[in-house]
Design a protein around this nucleic acid. Structure first.
Lengths: 204, 204
DNA sequence: GTCGTAGGCGTACCTCGTACACCTAACGGA
DNA sequence: TCCGTTAGGTGTACGAGGTACGCCTACGAC
């Protein structure tokens, strides 16, 4: 067995995440990651079969940092809120991974582990198989949608100027956009999450 | 004023959508759209400044087909369900646009018009400014997330084989994946939507 | 008919992912 | 101690895609 590997998958993922955080998704290229590691571009292909696999490593690095432990005795809605809030925090620290999350959520161990934890809570709360599927997907859809929305500039961001021109054509949108500026991303996420959680029920 | 344009933006969008439907997102290139129109690649740049603008046209073409009319006297939750269902139908007919929707939802007139209609319903239901923002974003987040989830292969799709190997590591996930196969995409979407709608309330 | 403007096009460049062939470092066995 | 094997590391090059640039040309107004 000649020549040990000089890189662990984790180190690769960390380098890629560093590039991603610094330069954003368009800046994440095989060349830029290789440079970050002081290697040649092609050397990366000794560790991953293609770019997609590299992305998966990054997603997993971010998501797998999520604490899945839950204090006993917490009501199930709050358990879900905790798990969802935690993964949002993890991902929120690296906004540029959000688009990657979409394509790799089925294949990353970290994501799967989180899903398993959520389903465990639902099962414990008495959700039957069918209700569990629906509830899980709904929660996941909200999470992904909300992350997405938060990621690519909130309406409130550059909204002001844009919205001014809209008050004629889209009056409700314009009015709401004004109100939106007083709401933080966290409040918005938690508010939306509360809506989804309130709608969940073991017998639906 | 010499030489009238031989193409309308709508025709451009239609051609791009045709390519998109036929070859999927990776098949949508400036070259392929130009070929579809029997033009040279660079001729497209007389109509759009860049690829992103072309994408916006496609998104708008798909979304703007949504009927925003509502029968009077319908309860607000059902009004929202109708509007949401309609836009899902529109987009569902062209699954490959889903990823584009994310990047262009702020800038497409069709999307804005739909948002305005939704906000009108919420306002009519007595939602205050703040509650309206939260409710709207939550609904939008669910919609986008659900479309996304439906788009890139459902867990149920290739899931069977994959899940077999997971029953050890992710027991709940494996069990739920099995149950998921008995649920259609439509039931899943409607079920999740019902959850969100149930959670909505004018005074939150 | 002529002229100016804008539509249409060919070429070329840059960036990316990655196939391929080569060099070389390191470890086990002799 | 030396050597062969094997996998790590690299340079080069190709094809795809977006698009800047400059030329040619069709068309409508006068």
């Amino acid at each position: 067995m000649p020549r040990p590997r000089s890189l662990t998958p984790a180190a690769l993922a960390a380098a890629a995440l560093a590039v991603l955080d610094r330069e954003g998704l368009p800046g994440l290229t095989m060349r830029s990651v290789a440079t970050e590691l002081h290697m040649s571009t092609m050397a990366l292909y000794r560790y991953v079969p293609d770019r997609s696999a590299l992305e998966r490593l990054v997603v997993d690095l971010v998501v797998s940092g999520t604490d899945l432990g839950l204090p006993a005795g917490l009501p199930w809605r709050e358990q879900l809120a905790v798990l969802t809030g935690r993964i949002r925090t993890q991902i929120g620290a690296h906004p540029a991974v959000v688009p990657l999350l979409l394509s790799h959520r089925h294949t990353s161990p970290g994501t799967l582990a989180w899903g398993d934890a959520v389903l465990a809570v639902l099962a414990g709360a008495g959700f039957g198989a069918r209700a569990r599927v629906i509830a899980f997907r709904a929660l996941l859809a909200y999470l992904l949608g909300a992350l997405q929305a938060g990621h690519l500039g909130p309406l409130s961001g550059s909204g002001t100027g844009v919205m001014a021109g809209l008050s004629g054509t889209y009056p409700h949108l314009a009015a709401t956009a004004r109100a939106a500026q007083a709401i933080t991303a966290g409040e918005e996420f938690d508010g939306g999450l509360a809506i989804v959680l309130r709608g969940l029920s073991p017998d639906s």
